[in-house]
Structure formats: structure tokens, C-alpha cells
Design a protein around this nucleic acid. Structure first.
Length: 241
DNA sequence: CGTCCAGGTCTAC
DNA sequence: GGTAGACCTGGACGC
């Protein structure tokens, strides 16, 4: 079965499946799609805050919905696969997970936990990340770790969600900030070897410490990370009028 | 062929 | 709490 999503240009999101879906499958698909496209998140406060912002007012008509994975677990794994390697490496690792463990879909935690070390080494070529991924998958599969509870709807404060993420092997400041954004927690700035130079180009500064970058966005409060991300990715958006 | 580094993190000071 | 060094991998680069 294959599911595709399309934007028919009438303001709606169209989701189609090649297979007939049961009632429960429709409910599950609905939940997944709403998460991926952030359909239940309220961006109104953010848009209100930037409507007169010379750098960000362009985003106030609907930008900012970073595409998320169906599960927080998947976003954590994928994010670890972006650390300290080129994008081609991330694609290699995630493709191996999907094609060789997940039968075309992202693998369940239990499947990742049971995969032998040689899969991570020889197929995914994940290097030292392999042990991190398998450890996290094992804890999730065992039920001793539930990353889905980090979603804002469960009420855990940002600081505690961050602490939980930072406790995961392979998750440091960058990965933590990245996953927080994908969870719909927009305070932390994603600072890495891509966004730092991008900020320098944008600001015209010759150099800027992480501390000073963070300070420059503190005015956006709970949406500082989203404001930072949108400014850096403005060129990704076709219509910026 | 050696070095560097790409959407960093961990450990040991 | 801040900071060197090591760490898998593979592609780019200089020699």
C-alpha cells in the first residue's frame, strides 16, 4: 500500500491511498497526517507577533509548518543520522533503515532493536551512531522510554523535554534543538555547521557566537527557534510576497 | 595518498 | 562550565 499527499491549490490537503482503508486505518492515517503537517498547531500567536516584522512578515500568511515524521521516535533517529556527516550520509542511513528493516516504511523500534550490529555497520554504514540508534530503539521497544510523550499536548515543560532528549545517546545541543522544533516546541535555535554560516550571510556579520545569535532572537520568545529557522530558509519558500 | 570536514557528541580533564 | 581529542563514514581537495 502506498499513501500520497497532495495540495490541490484550494487550501486543502488531499491524502490518497492505493488500498482501501478500514475505519481504524483511516483514523490512524488521519492522526499521522495531522502530526506530519502540524494541522492541530496554532500559529496565530506567532503570526500576530511577526505581522509587522520587516524580516518575517512574509511568513505570517502560513509559513512555519516544518514537516515532521509520524512519530517522535522517527524524528529522533533521523536527526541523529544528520549529525557529523554530509547529507548524503543521512540519506544512506535512513534509506537502509526503511528499505532493509522497515519493508518500505520506517521500521518499528522493536525491529531496529533486534537488527544485528552488522546491519548498522555494513548496510546503514552508520559508524559510531549505530550503537546510539539501537540503544534508543531498544529502550522504546521495551517501554522504558516513550518519546511520544514529549509532544507538547502531554504538558511536559520545554525544559524537561529538553532534558529527556539530551539524556539520549547521540543527542546533543543541535539534535535536541532540532527534535524540539519537530515536536512543535519552538524556543531553541538549531545551531549547526549549516545554520551558523547562513546566519552570518544573512546578518552581514563577520562572526557571531551562539550566545549572541540566541540573544538576537530572544525577542521572539517561545518562537525564537522558529523565527531563526524561517529567516534562514526564506529562500526555500516560493511565494514570499 | 594524506588531510579535512560535513546539518556533532562524548569523554576527560 | 568550558574546552581539546577521538570518533565512523565518504566525498572533496591538495600534493
Amino acid at each position: 500500500m502506498r499513501v500520497v499527499a497532495a495540495l490541490p491549490a484550494n487550501g486543502e490537503l488531499l491524502v490518497q491511498s492505493t488500498a482501501r482503508l478500514s475505519a481504524s486505518a483511516k483514523v490512524e492515517l488521519n492522526t499521522i497526517v495531522r502530526r506530519m503537517f502540524r494541522l492541530d498547531e496554532d500559529f496565530a500567536p506567532f503570526y500576530a507577533a511577526i505581522e509587522n516584522d520587516p524580516d518575517l512578515s512574509w511568513a505570517a500568511k502560513g509559513a512555519g509548518r516544518m514537516l515532521a515524521s509520524p512519530t517522535a521516535f522517527e524524528d529522533v533517529v533521523k536527526t541523529i543520522c544528520t549529525t557529523n556527516c554530509a547529507w548524503s550520509g543521512t540519506v544512506r542511513m535512513v534509506t537502509a533503515l526503511v528499505e532493509q528493516l522497515g519493508e518500505g516504511a520506517f521500521p518499528e523500534p522493536g525491529v531496529m532493536a533486534r537488527a544485528p550490529a552488522r546491519f548498522y555497520r555494513d548496510a546503514a554504514r552508520a559508524g559510531y551512531r549505530g550503537a546510539y540508534l539501537r540503544t534508543i530503539a531498544a529502550h522504546v521497544a521495551a517501554g522504558s522510554l516513550n518519546l511520544e510523550l514529549l509532544r507538547p499536548e502531554f504538558g511536559l515543560p520545554d525544559a524537561e523535554a529538553e532534558k529527556k532528549l539530551m539524556e539520549l545517546p547521540g543527542v546533543g545541543p543541535y539534535a535536541c534543538a532540532h527534535v524540539m522544533m519537530l515536536l512543535g516546541r519552538y524556543h531553541r535555535l538549531i545551531l549547526d555547521s549549516s545554520t551558523r554560516p547562513a546566519y552570518l550571510r544573512l546578518s552581514g556579520k563577520r562572526r557571531a557566537s551562539d550566545r549572541s545569535i540566541t540573544r538576537a532572537f530572544r525577542g521572539y520568545g517561545a518562537f525564537a527557534g522558529l523565527a531563526f529557522w524561517l529567516m534562514l530558509t526564506r529562500s526555500w519558500v516560493a511565494d514570499q510576497s
